[in-house]
Structure formats: structure tokens, C-alpha cells
Amino acid sequence: MAYAFDFSSVLEYRDILLAGTGRTLLLTGIGAVAGLALGIVGAVCRAWKLAPFDRLFAVYVEFIRNTPFLVQLFFIFFGLPSLGIQLDEWQAAIIAVVINLGAYTTEIVRAGVEATPRGQIEAAQSLAMTRPQIFRHIVLPPALAKVWPAVCSQVVIVMLGTSVCSQIAAEELTFAANFIQSRNFRAFETYFAVTAIYFLLALFVRNALAYAGMQLLGRRTK
């Protein structure tokens, strides 16, 4: 007997899908802003060799980039309470995303910071600019502009990765999918529809970030 596809049984739960989509976007948004900020701090420490933070960030980057996001999430959510740090599922998810993205953006932004021509820094020093001023006005804007496409890709990868946050019962889009398919018994249709939503979200996030980059960093971004 041929299988009859029934997507209307998924549509019935559109409120839950919408809420899940919103939470996935919110998680990604908070993670992207805080993760990029962490990455910028890490990039300065690494590129300008600010001891002892350069070493600390080097270890942090290697450790995060060589372990799966799911394990980082489990460690934060299930492991940290042993140390007396109790986190609810959203706190754990946000912290995991920020820590994960921070490690990748440290390396990405560092490449941009290191590409700053020496002459520009020397010129800024001769104008009696302080080191923070030089970083804020001379080094950071062109560095971010240079690596912005890589930052966008990484945020999209992290957004797709947040689907595993459903495993600690953070009620994002994948959690919504699991919930819906447990109600309507239409696993394939539900996951297919949610996969399509993720695909559109990835397109949206990529374009929104490219637009934001153009607004913030001006004509330097391609």
C-alpha cells in the first residue's frame, strides 16, 4: 500500500513551529553577538601576544574546536552542577553556543587582525593614539571587514548546530519537531518540514549578516 503524505497534520502545529523557530533565531542571535565579542577579545590577545591571555585563549580555542558541540553542551548542562553551578536548559544552551562560536571567531578574527599592515599601526602611534584607540579605530574595522564572510559562514554552522540543544530539552525548533511528531505520528513529514525551515533560516541568517556587515563595516565588505 502506497504511503499517503500528510503535511496538513504538521501545519496544525504551526504555532509550536513558529515559537521554536523564534527561539532558534534568538539563541543564534544572542550567541552570535556575544560569541563575536568573545572572539574579538580572543583575537587581540592572540594576535598581540598579551600574556598570559594569549596562551589561555590558545588552549581554549584548541579544546573547543577539537570536541563536538553536543559534548560541550552535555558537559555544561549535566557536568557543571557537580561543581555547584546549576543552569537551566536555556542558560546552558546560550553559554555553550557563545563558548563554541567564541573559539571559532577568535581564530577567524585573528587572521584579519594579523593582516593589518605595520605601517598603519606605526602611523597611528605617531599620532599619539593609545593602544585601545589604535585597535578600535585602525585595526578592528578593516580586520572584521576582511573576515566577515567567514564569520557569516560560522554563524550559520552554529545556527544549524543548535538543533542538538533539543537534547537538553531547550524548546527550540528541533524540540518542536520532536514534540509534534510524537503527537501526530507523522515523523517523516514533520522532520521534512522542519528541515525546510532550517534551510530557509540558513538563507535568512546568511543574508541578514551580510547586510549587517555592509551597514556596520561599510564598503569594505565584499
Binding site: 538543533s163 528541533t174 519537531a177 522532520y191 522542519v194 540558513a202
Partner: peptide, 11 residues
Amino acid sequence: QGTPLLMQLFI
């Protein structure tokens, strides 16, 4: 590249 690996596995 535009969908989560978890969703690909579920499907």
C-alpha cells in the same frame, strides 16, 4: 550545508 546534520539523520 544548509540543514542540520541531526535533521538529515532523522529524515
